[in-house]
């Protein structure tokens, strides 16, 4: 097998934690707007979870600067590398855009933005019905885009693991505590 350079442990931890949170969030989002019996309970989870994702996304972007990801295999065709790069830019952009659009929509709609108990966020935009409509729509469309990008990411990750078998999946999926400092995958 190809030797693999792992993502730093803190990067893997952030990745898998956020993977679970974002996937749960997307299911909660589409579920709550079509299930009136569960609406309140799901919405009560949706707001603090969204706020946590926004904070973690910022931490993750910072971590990415401090702990850069390992390079992709050298022999990976450049169109595939470009796709991988683009999908990660999209994932990062949407991790910020979806919660911010949600926060903005609640602000413009004049809603209290309750996280838990008396803990609430301030509005980030002035109240306005037209602004609410635009941001609410943006929140939904961007969330669906995030889900589509997630599906592409999932498919690509599994293709790396089961079709290409190039060590890219293992670089994120490993449970080893420390990142190995061996040669990059595919290097000669």
């Amino acid at each position: 097998m190809t030797s693999t350079t792992l993502f730093p442990a803190v990067s893997r931890l952030l990745h898998w934690l956020m993977a679970v949170m974002i996937l749960a969030m997307l299911f909660i989002g589409v579920g709550m707007v079509t299930s009136p019996d569960w609406y309140h309970w799901l919405l009560s989870v949706h707001r603090p979870l969204g706020a946590a994702i926004l904070v973690l996304a910022a931490l993750r972007l910072l971590n990415r600067q401090l702990n850069p990801p390992p390079p992709l295999p050298r022999d990976m065709p450049s169109p595939m590398k470009a796709m991988a790069h683009l999908s990660h830019v999209a994932l990062y952009a949407l991790m910020f855009a979806v919660p911010l659009a949600g926060w903005g929509a609640l602000s413009a709609g004049g809603y209290p933005i309750v996280l838990y108990g008396a803990i609430h966020l301030p509005p980030i935009l002035p109240q306005g019905a037209a602004l609410y409509t635009a941001l609410h729509m943006a929140h939904e469309i961007l969330a669906l885009l995030l889900f589509a990008t997630f599906l592409a990411h999932l498919g690509a990750a599994l293709a790396h693991a089961l079709v290409f078998r190039d060590g890219v999946f293992e670089s994120m999926a490993s449970l080893k505590a420390a990142a190995s400092r061996q040669a990059e995958p595919g290097a000669r």
């Binding site: 997307l26 299911f27 589409v30 579920g31 707007v33 079509t34 299930s35 009136p36 609406y39 889900f147 599906l151 999932l154 498919g155 599994l158 293709a159 089961l162 079709v163």
Partner: peptide, 30 residues
């Protein structure tokens, strides 16, 4: 292996569609 890749993506998409009520339009949604 190919089946696992396809099933994982299609299964996640299907579960999402179910959660969002696209597969069960008779659900009494808001």
């Amino acid at each position: 292996n190919l089946g696992i890749v396809v099933a994982a993506v299609a299964g996640t998409a299907g579960a999402f569609a179910y959660a969002g009520g696209w597969i069960a339009p008779q659900r009494l949604s808001q």
